[in-house]
C-alpha cells in the first residue's frame, strides 16, 4: 500500500521538506514490509498485552502538594509574557 506521507506528517505535526517526504516514503514502505512478517503469526483468540506488569489500580490519594514556582515553570520557554507562555497567534477561521 502507499503511505500518504503528507497526511501522516500533518497528523504528526512534523514539518517536512519535499525531499524528506520522498525519502521517508521509501523507508516507511521498507519497514512496513518487514513488519508485515507478523501476519505469519496466528493470533486468533489471543488477547493483546499493552502492559507487562500485571499491576492494577495504582492510584494516588487526592492530597495536593506544592507546585513549581512560576519562574521554574517558565525557565525553559522560548517566549513568555507576564507569566504566560507565549506563541504566535492562533485564530479560528472567522
Amino acid at each position: 500500500m502507499k503511505i500518504d506521507v503528507s497526511r501522516v506528517a500533518q497528523l504528526a505535526n512534523l514539518p517536512l521538506t519535499a525531499d524528506e517526504k520522498k525519502k521517508l516514503a521509501a523507508q516507511l514502505e521498507e519497514t512496513l514490509t518487514y513488519i508485515d512478517q507478523l501476519n505469519e503469526v496466528d493470533t486468533k483468540n489471543i488477547l493483546p498485552t499493552s502492559q507487562v506488569t500485571g499491576l492494577e489500580n495504582v492510584l494516588a490519594e487526592d492530597i495536593a502538594q506544592p507546585s513549581l514556582t512560576q519562574q521554574a515553570a517558565l525557565a525553559n520557554a522560548q517566549a513568555t509574557d507576564k507569566g504566560f507562555f507565549k506563541v504566535k497567534g492562533i485564530f479560528s477561521d472567522e
Binding site: I35, L38, T43, I46, L47, P48, T49, S50, V52
Partner: peptide, 12 residues
C-alpha cells in the same frame, strides 16, 4: 498495533 500487542502475548 493491536496485532503486535497480541504477538507480545504469545512471546510472554
Amino acid at each position: 498495533y493491536n496485532k503486535a500487542l497480541k504477538v507480545r502475548t504469545v512471546i510472554i
